[in-house]
């Protein structure tokens, strides 16, 4: 059922605007991939290219071994869920879901009873039984989203594409739907690509995350990969908060000013560099080696964690540190912090 999707060296330009530059991406059958990026990064364009709603200027998209260029939209068998659902408001829920089946050429069209049966099954699948006769206007946002998904699944798609699937929903419903979608995917096993600008959503849901920036693919990898080993400063900053320390690398050590702050660097990249450190990769220590002295200037709560802001001599921005224990220093206290994990990017 599900096929591999191969994206080969895609270029796409809208007049003066270069939407995609030489993007290549392999998607395995049954994989759940997130296209992540800020608005204007080209992620939606890439999704629409896979769907066939846009034509590439260069490069090609393969489903399995088939070049999709010559396939009609119908033959591509794409299940597409639009950000604003794009439900047909003059049709009931059942008519919406049955639309794809009823649009098939007469020879391939299932009979009425079969269509009714499938609509029922799909409504069960998306957990909306008994809503067949409602109109889209009579549904909540989350329900509409699930109807849109059922409609997309009805045509037994080769690939499922979701454009900001939770973009228009409340925070609470988003979280519920996320878990539900993950679960649905593991049951149905469609090759699925979804677009999002929410890194948390991408990391939580996807098997692999593809991060786009200004039309370029910056990095592809598992959530752990991209989060812990960002390939570029952009990926690092986009995926989560990070302190940026201007350092100089000599040998395997990084120096802030003339003080060594991190050792054991494996890449051989001597010279000036930016050291990116996530707030939870900083901790208070007592010992002196490789630690940074500073003063606690601010304590705040950020959801589950507490955050300390530490002023360090020679840095214009305070360091953000997430406290892992309930024991917190007082404001004004002199402390030493140590970097437990960091990524260095040469700045020269």
């Amino acid at each position: 059922m599900s096929v591999a999707v191969t994206i080969e060296a895609i270029d796409k330009r809208f007049l003066a605007f270069q939407a995609l530059r030489n993007v290549s991406l392999d998607i395995q059958p049954g994989e759940l991939v997130a296209l992540l990026g800020p608005s204007g990064s080209g992620k939606t364009t890439l999704l629409r290219l896979i769907a066939g709603l846009e034509q590439a200027d260069a490069g090609r998209v393969l489903f399995g071994d088939d070049d999709t260029r010559d396939l009609s939209l119908r033959d591509r068998r794409i299940g597409f869920v639009f950000q604003h659902y794009a439900l047909f408001k003059t049709m009931t829920v059942a008519e919406n879901i049955a639309f794809g089946l009823r649009s098939r050429p007469r020879a391939e069209r299932p009979d009425g009873a079969e269509i009714t049966r499938r609509v029922k099954a799909l409504l069960e699948l998306v957990q909306l039984p008994d809503l067949e006769r409602r109109y889209p206007s009579q549904l909540s946002g989350g329900q509409r989203q699930r109807v849109a998904l059922a409609r997309a699944l009805a045509i037994e798609p080769q690939v499922l594409l979701l454009d900001e699937p939770f973009g228009a929903l409340d925070a609470k419903i988003r979280k519920d739907l996320r878990a539900w979608l993950r679960d649905l995917h593991s049951r149905t096993g469609h090759t699925t690509v979804f677009v999002t600008h929410d890194q948390e959503e991408a990391l939580e849901l996807a098997d692999r995350v593809a991060i786009l920036h200004e039309g370029k693919l910056e990095q592809v990898g598992t959530p752990d990969d991209v989060y812990d080993h960002p390939a570029t400063p952009f990926v690092c900053e986009f995926l989560g908060e990070a302190n940026r320390l201007p350092v100089k690398i000599v040998g395997s050590q990084a120096f802030l000013g003339d003080r060594p702050v991190l050792g054991g660097l494996t890449q051989n990249q001597s010279g000036p560099a930016a050291l990116y450190v996530r707030p939870h990769h900083l901790k208070f220590v007592d010992e002196t080696p490789l630690s940074i002295p500073g003063v606690v200037e601010q304590l705040r709560r950020t959801g589950a964690l507490r955050r300390a802001e530490i002023a360090v001599a020679g840095l214009t921005k305070r360091l953000d540190l997430d406290l892992t224990s309930q024991v917190a220093p007082a404001i004004g206290e002199r402390v030493r912090v140590k970097i437990t994990h960091a990524t260095a990017f040469a700045t020269a």
Binding site: F14, L15, A16, F17, S39, G40, T44, T45, R48, L53
Partner: peptide, 20 residues
């Protein structure tokens, strides 16, 4: 569609209506 894009050149490719 091209005219639409001319009016809004920046980053709104989804207004392009090629299929319809």
């Amino acid at each position: 569609d091209r005219a639409t894009n001319l009016a809004a050149p920046a980053a709104r490719p989804r207004t392009a209506r090629r299929t319809g």
